[in-house]
């Protein structure tokens, strides 16, 4: 029996409609990129869920760690003036 230890893991991203961003939908094992695309088509788009598929080697994804969140995002948290609501304007022009 052969197992799939040599098969690479791919992350699958789908664009459900033209104009939208690709969204991550899951992953799968495949020998190479072409095969990953075909598998992705077979397992993730059987009901027309996507008009475009991206597959990316999982090992090529560099991810931030949630446990590092505090120090990673820390300097961004204390700037309420980056939000439009921070500025109190007269009612008649508040839709700006």
């Amino acid at each position: 029996m052969t197992d799939n230890v040599n098969m690479k893991l791919y992350e699958v991203f789908l664009r459900s409609r033209r104009g939208l961003d690709h969204k991550h939908v899951g992953s799968l094992h495949a020998e190479d990129q072409e095969q990953a695309l075909e598998y992705a088509r077979d397992v993730y788009t059987r009901r027309g869920e996507g008009v475009s598929i991206w597959v990316v080697n999982s090992s090529d994804i560099c991810a931030s760690q949630e446990s590092d969140c505090e120090s990673f995002y820390d300097p961004l948290d204390d700037k309420p003036y980056r939000h439009a609501t921070h500025y109190k304007l007269p009612d008649e022009v508040n839709s700006m």
Partner: peptide, 20 residues
């Protein structure tokens, strides 16, 4: 189009701080 959506979300603050 998608970059415009992202940018528009951030622009309101710019106009309001100027007006302020």
């Amino acid at each position: 189009a998608r970059s415009m959506v992202r940018i528009c979300k951030e622009e309101s603050f710019h106009q309001r701080q100027g007006y302020h």
